[in-house]
Nucleic acid binder design. Structure first.
Lengths: 155, 155
DNA sequence: CTAAAATACTTAATATATTAACTATTAATA
DNA sequence: TATTAATAGTTAATATATTAAGTATTTTAG
């Protein structure tokens, strides 16, 4: 079958940029699988992985502005609005306008949001352990550094 | 400030599982940045990165079932339904029920969908080049292999 | 052969993401 | 100082993703 054989040639020639063999797809899938694993582990707490990202920012520095969080996570402000809405409903955080600059909305941890600091990081650790069970410390370090370079290339 | 100092201790102790330092977040961001870059390059064609994933599957084997594509991309059937809906509206593919098993819906490339095979892979390549500009061939290979292992750990 | 289980797909509800448009407030400048 | 520009945030529209529920068809088992 000539059509099937030319197909194979095409796939071989372009393999590096075709799904499911290419870098972009593999990054997407790896990220997605970690998301699914973590989402399941967060189920008992009624939280999502994105809630965890925002909590991490606030555990490090409470009272960040919406755009402060967006910058730290390189997410868009419009996305943060929705996430913070749901986190507020979930009583993890609350909003307060900055009095010196009324444009700014600051996000503060509630008691519940603070307490989760003693619980969630070890939950997140479990997903990392599951993902890297057969990957050595030095390989993990190498991977993180490669990801940093890739991120800075596209930033 | 004792609260700020205990905060630093906390961040140092849990750094490996806290955003924006942890593996999960970095994978998410890397994937997201490649998505944004590719989405922009696909703008002139009115396509999304997900359309490209499906096209790749069909270029390799036309007439796959919906669940065949879902399996190949490790995506959920429910997601594929929506994507194929929009690809059908965009005249990239069309659906046809399998006559031997009426449960199965097969997805076929239109002429337009076929022609893009000569155009899009080199567009995808550009995003990969941008992301890996300062990363050597051997490092890229190492990264792909590490991603494969991570993916298989969570599959 | 028929009831139950399994498979393939779709629909609906909710939560990210992205872009564009819009409001409110503050900063810059002519 | 009055106007313009910039910044911070929200809203709306559209496109992924995930889960759960539902329909149609085929397979399996009793």
């Amino acid at each position: 079958m000539s059509s099937s054989s030319s197909n194979q040639e095409f796939v071989e020639q372009w393999r590096h940029s075709l799904a499911p063999y290419n870098l972009g797809y593999k990054l997407k899938l790896a990220s997605q699988l970690m998301y699914r694993d973590f989402l399941e582990r967060l189920q008992p707490y009624g939280l999502t992985p994105f809630h965890y990202l925002v909590l991490c920012c606030l555990w490090e520095e409470d009272g960040l502005s919406t755009s402060g969080i967006a910058d730290k996570l390189k997410q868009l402000g419009a996305t943060l609005t929705g996430v913070v809405d749901r986190m507020e409903q979930r009583s993890l955080v609350y909003r307060q306008r900055d009095n010196r600059d009324r444009r700014i909305v600051r996000i503060w941890l509630t008691d519940e949001g603070k307490k989760l600091m003693n619980v969630l990081p070890s939950v997140g650790e479990k997903t990392i352990f599951a993902a890297t069970q057969d990957i050595s410390e030095s390989e993990q370090k190498a991977m993180l550094q490669l990801l940093d370079r890739l991120i800075s290339n596209l930033s």
